[in-house]
Simulated scan of single mutants.
Amino acid sequence: MSPTVVITGASAGIGRATARLYGRRGANVVLVARGEGGLRAAADEVAALGGRPLVQPADVADPAQVEAVAEVAEKEFGPIDVWINCAFSTVFAPFEEITAEEFKRVTEVTYLGFVNGTRSALKRMLPRDRGTIVQVGSALGERSIPLQSAYCGAKHAINGFTSSLRTELLHRGSNVHVTVAQMPAVNTPQFDWVRTRLSKHPMPVPPIYQPEVAARGVAYAADHPRRKQYYVGATTLATVWANRFVPALLDRYLARTGFDSQQTDRIPPAGQDNLFEPVDRERAADHGAHGAFDDSSHARSWQATLARHPAATAVGAGVAALGAVGTIRRLAS
């Protein structure tokens, strides 16, 4: 029997690549996002790859819309097996240049959207005593950087919320699992449609990975949800280690480098951003999974590959430790 998987933020980026992956598995894939253009294109891809798509336009910041998605999904496909929270929004700007309305919107989508999805999933999974929830997190939920205060705050909140929920599930002996897949910098279309007040075009902090690397990490976390979190990309793990051992040094390093490393030499994007309204209302506006940084993005991650093989975990941890040492040395230089 084909599994039923709900993916929020499925119209582009990591969510889109994850939808394709589950399409190849022949899954029932419920595609959730605001932009119908991206959703329809994603549905075509899922169907072409062998899956069964269901398009559900919704704003995850609205719990009623999320609940309606869950109801339709189970009516169409039966019990939800995996719920993947991936939708987000952000603003690139110094904190004092982000309005209260903008900060609230980022929090409602990027944090409360995960809470809303988790609530609707649990409402159905707990009575059946089975199911898996995957939160698509970020290295920035472990270590904040400048110019993304709203996003970093939301990603930190997801970690705290999920840890609390996990202990509640353990207390009741539930067979419902929740895990977090912590992501590195990923080449997604968000950098072309994000709201920004930077003088140059925003970009992910290198090294950058392709969305397919992230999608494989998400699917692996869903397949093996007993671990509380998975780190995708060596830089994610090295950043976490460096933050644990030398947080003050990392603060100073990011204060010195974090502004320039998030901007290209190009002028910032002009036109509509997606903070309050989707930019892909029409089918022709589909942005796909990849952003503008294909030439500088990695299609593979040795760390993520090692993490999928338990026998190699110790080796991966050792190499990550060496990476953290290298990071620390760069901070001190």
Rank of each mutant, 00 (worst) to 15 (best):
V240I: 15
Q135N: 15
G35T: 00
P206K: 11
K155T: 09
A43G: 02
E71G: 01
W241E: 09
G288R: 10
V106W: 09
R330S: 14
S199H: 13
P57R: 01
D223K: 11
R119I: 03
H201N: 03
Y220G: 04
S164T: 14
D44S: 05
T236D: 06
R216Y: 08
K155G: 04
A238V: 09
F103I: 13
L331T: 15
E97V: 04
F259C: 00
Q56E: 11
T118G: 05
Q65F: 00
D265A: 13
K123I: 09
Q303R: 10
V55W: 04
A304D: 03
F276E: 06
L169A: 04
G233I: 15
H224R: 13
P207N: 09
Y151D: 04
D192N: 15
D59H: 05
T239M: 15
G288M: 04
C86G: 04
A27S: 15
R281A: 00
A289I: 03
I7V: 15
S333P: 07
A221T: 07
T4G: 01
A307N: 08
N274S: 13
E101M: 03
P202R: 14
N175C: 08
R143T: 15
V6E: 02
A299M: 01
V60E: 00
G23C: 07
G50K: 05
E212A: 11
A311P: 01
A299E: 05
F114P: 00
D280N: 07
E168H: 09
V46I: 09
V218G: 05
R283C: 00
R166F: 07
A100V: 15
I328Q: 11
G258A: 03
P94W: 11
V319H: 11
S163L: 10
D192I: 09
G153T: 12
Y230V: 01
F161S: 03
Q229R: 13
D286H: 04
Q148K: 14
R256D: 14
C152A: 13
V115W: 06
L21S: 03
I80H: 00
A317D: 11
G137E: 08
A292W: 06
R308Y: 02
T110M: 11
S296Y: 01
E67T: 08
A27N: 04
T196G: 03
S120L: 04
